[in-house]
Write a protein that binds this DNA or RNA. Structure first.
Lengths: 212, 212
DNA sequence: GCACTTGTTGTACGAACGTCCAACAAGCAA
DNA sequence: TTGCTTGTTGGACGTTCGTACAACAAGTGC
């Protein structure tokens, strides 16, 4: 880590790697370091210094790329959410063209790695804690939620659900998946990830077969 | 507030009220102050100093009653959860003896004041952020979750649901309610509290009528 | 080679944090 | 009244936080 040399002033520092990175790559490495710190130490341990140490970078560099921890957490959330979205897309792709199979793959993937991981919980919590006080982060959440629900509405429509029912069914299934995911993270011994998937598919069947 | 006199040492302080309270009452006032701070300032503003100021008490007193912020947050969560539980009990009482009406009252109450309030979100988030790192808090969550689910299983059994189905149905409905509640707090313009209740009742009908 | 630009460093600084503790004040027993 | 117990105070202390900034090093163009 080469941190014990810090007692010397700043004119001989050949022992520390000075590497200039592409701005995007540096941002990405900070985002990933932030995700690792959140996963390992939780919200309480998520500080500029901890993230800089994790990224192998000096503390000042964090402020050079992000206006503060909040902005970094928001980008970390967006980054992980993109990974989650990609994993679901891959599951839909793998499920083939049958609408029903695609719908089931959607909920099944929500409880499989890398999504159903307690390590992601701290990132979600850190983001949620900013929603009510920062309007731009509230907007980010609105957009993410709307995107998730719109995709689900599309899958339900493919399964032949009438348009007037789409909205409420999608809200219900989104809430069910999120609730199961949250409780799986918080009380992992209450039920398993496999059971969560089975419960969600079962509820899906009930919600899509009932007339209204 | 009488805080500007702090430059003087500690031998003339007649201007500050010194009131000795019952230990339980003092604990309760600190818990309520913690809840107010969380509601007003969010997780980030929840410090020993802020809570002491809110309670009209010196910072040192917080440490006299609680081992730290974590313990105070845990007790605040338990306190609010007890209020939520009492509100649901009252709704069940008011619903009469019909099992179906009682079950619907259960979910309806979950989205009515004082439960469906964004001000509670920060308390929940502060508690959740401790679950994965503090085993005694994880246990507290397990117990609260088990209690909630057991009550729901009881209501479902009264409605005639066969015993083998109780567990999964209760997990699903609990997750649905929690997910709707969370998303209502985070994106309040996505749907209203009334719609959340209606969606939950609708899903309830689908989940309880489907054979399996 | 030599300026010039700019990503990066390490430290310094003030503010806020949790904790600690000697001093103090109210109630109670005698 | 007097002495004792104990809830309560307010400031001291060391730590950690986020931010700011001058110094430095790697590219880049000339």
């Amino acid at each position: 880590m080469a941190l014990q040399v810090s007692s010397r002033p700043a004119f001989t520092r050949a022992e520390r790697a000075f590497t200039r990175a592409e701005p995007d790559a540096r941002r990405a490495s900070l985002v990933e370091a932030c995700a690792r710190v959140l996963a390992r130490e939780g919200v309480a341990g998520c500080s500029v210094r901890a993230i800089a140490l994790e990224a192998g970078v000096s503390p000042g560099l964090v402020g050079h790329y992000f206006s503060g921890i909040d902005a970094l957490v928001a980008e970390t959330y967006a980054h992980i959410e993109a990974q989650v979205s990609a994993a679901i897309d891959a599951a839909l792709e793998a499920a083939g063209s049958d609408p029903r199979a695609r719908l089931e793959a959607f909920v099944t993937a929500s409880f499989a790695p890398p999504i159903a991981s307690g390590e992601l919980l701290a990132t979600w919590i850190a983001f949620w804690s900013l929603v009510r006080s920062r309007s731009e982060i509230a907007r980010q959440h609105d957009e993410q939620y709307a995107r998730f629900r719109a995709r689900l509405e599309g899958l339900l429509a493919e399964c032949g659900m009438p348009e007037p029912q789409l909205r409420r069914a999608a809200i219900a299934i989104t809430a069910l998946v999120d609730g199961l995911w949250l409780e799986l993270c918080l009380s992992p011994q209450a039920f398993s990830a496999e059971e969560a998937g089975a419960i969600a598919r079962q509820a899906l069947a009930a919600l899509t077969s009932s007339g209204r």
